[in-house]
Simulated scan of single mutants.
Amino acid sequence: MRRLLAPALSVLMLAQGAAPVLAAGFDDQQKQEIRGIVKDYLVQHPEVILEAIQALQARQDAEQANEAKGKIADLRDKLLRDSRDQVIGNPKGDVTLVEFFDYRCGYCKQAQPIVMELIKADPKLRVVLKEFPILGPDSLVASRAALASVAQGKYAAFHEALIASRGALPDDKIMEIAKTVGIDTEKLKADMSSPAIAAQIADAHSLAEKLAINGTPSFIIGDQLIPGAIDLEALKKLVSDARSACAGTC
């Protein structure tokens, strides 16, 4: 039976994508013995399964990251230079951080003070905000309201107030928040129905789809796509790396 151990482990490695096909040529009894050895090995060493899953996830993440780099390059102007998008930080900054976000997303709310701290720490950082409502009708209404507030010059304050809010965001609460930052809510309601606003949100969704972004927050900096929340030091490192690599072009 021991003579079958190496082939059995090779079959196990094959399941992890690490060996050529070795099972061909075994008779049924040998295959059954191999299955038994592999089963026994996995029962005795279940950590191998976790290691295999982690290796597979790492490989998939690397493949997705490489694929994203090419797509980011192709979509760079739409990501960084869409004149409709709102920009915070330094509008003429040498590095741009793009954030896809949803006002009802708890992780976006956690990320907001981190982004603001990053802006405070880096006066050369430009941040592009992509309204990406994906958490239901309230999210969509909040994004439409935020974009409509641009006409009153109140986007930045309204954006921060919406992100800072807790709980649900029904229409009446959105309007109450708007009033607190000095927005004319009657004008806001009228402006929210603009086809241009609907088109802007639709374009953000199209961009996200092309980049396989399906959650918020998602960040893009340089040629990197970072899904999910990220801590301040990690963001600073990404900004520094992008600044070194891009020389003011990203």
Rank of each mutant, 00 (worst) to 15 (best):
A121T: 06
A68R: 00
L79K: 00
L5P: 02
A111W: 02
P137D: 09
I119C: 00
Q54P: 05
L238Q: 09
H45M: 05
L169H: 02
R59M: 11
D171E: 15
D74R: 12
A73N: 09
G25E: 07
F158T: 01
L169V: 03
H205K: 11
S165D: 08
A111I: 04
A18T: 13
A146T: 01
P46D: 05
V115K: 07
Q110H: 14
S193R: 10
A111H: 03
I201A: 10
G182T: 03
Q32K: 15
L135E: 01
M175C: 00
S194R: 15
I34H: 03
A148F: 01
A212Q: 11
D231V: 11
N66Q: 15
M13L: 15
V239I: 10
D172Q: 14
R2M: 14
I197L: 04
Q29W: 14
L162Y: 03
A202N: 14
R144T: 01
S143T: 05
A242G: 02
E131V: 08
D74L: 10
D74H: 13
G248T: 13
C105F: 05
T185Y: 00
K189E: 12
V150R: 11
S193M: 10
S206A: 14
M175R: 08
G248A: 07
I226G: 07
R243N: 08
G136W: 05
Q54D: 12
Q30Y: 12
D172P: 08
I134R: 05
R59H: 11
L4G: 08
L97H: 06
F26I: 05
P137L: 04
G222L: 05
V43T: 12
A55F: 13
C105A: 13
S193F: 11
Q60N: 14
F132D: 00
I197A: 09
Y107M: 12
Q57H: 14
A146Y: 03
L235Y: 06
L235K: 00
A212S: 15
S149D: 01
L129A: 04
A52P: 04
P227T: 03
P113L: 14
P20F: 06
E33K: 13
A247K: 15
V141M: 11
L56Q: 15
A156Y: 11
E67I: 08
V181A: 01
V239E: 13
K236N: 06
D241S: 08
G136D: 09
Q30T: 04
H159E: 04
